[in-house]
Design a protein around this nucleic acid. Sequence first.
DNA 1: AAGAGTTTCAACCGCAGTTCG
DNA 2: ACGAACTGCGGTTGAAACTCT
Length: 233
Amino acid sequence: MVVVKEETRRGPWSEHEDRQLLSFVRMLGDRRWDLIAKVSGLNRTGKSCRLRWVNYLNPDLKRGRLTPQEKLLVLQLHSLLGNRWSKIARKLPGRTDNEIKNYWRAHMRKISKECKRGSSLGTSLVCDSLSLISETPPQSISSLAEENGMDGVKCYSMDLIWDEIESSAGGFGRGMDGACDISCSLVPSLSKDVSEPQWKIDEDELRMSLLDDARSFFSNFHNDTEAWFFNQT
DNA sequence: AAGAGTTTCAACCGCAGTTCG
DNA sequence: ACGAACTGCGGTTGAAACTCT
């Protein structure tokens, strides 16, 4: 006799499954996912149930695109926390780590594409990202860092920042093949998240203009103040 | 109108950390 | 103290929706 083990269901959730999961989460809470998976008869893994709840069914979730304010906050927090999406998500009530991660990747893709094209939009997007980071008041960064248990973080003055840009770039990350890599340590996460040669632009000219644009951008915003950056060690 | 290219979003996977017996 | 089971996180993928040519 052959016992056929029913395959665990995968793929998109049906409305019926959603309703079922919802009612079991109400009964058992949103912690015991393996138990929920077993007793609900959903034939899904606990992991899958948790994910569906966290990313979709949880009534506390906000629907729709991130607002401009939320986008700014994501960029600021990412500059501080790196790819710790769940930590970033905790600062944006109603948003999930998945949502934020997706937004960040889309944002980076946009920048890299524009850079590839060599358009000024690419430059401005990069500057936007840099400015968002620097607009965060030092005090709030400090408190955020403390909250997240990041003691010993490194603060940068504007001078240091520019030193770093210029040195890391033998100009802007002059890579092995001489291409432009603006994902210098100034914005550490850029290089980590963008796969492929997405930051590579051939023209030295563009490299210098990016640098100039960024420099003038910063000088406009920071005549009187210093921006603070953190490096995780 | 249609096909190609791009973006968005939901879901899966593997791994690391935590809990429990 | 140890190992198994469970949970949470970050990276990745793929399908659907949307936009462009």
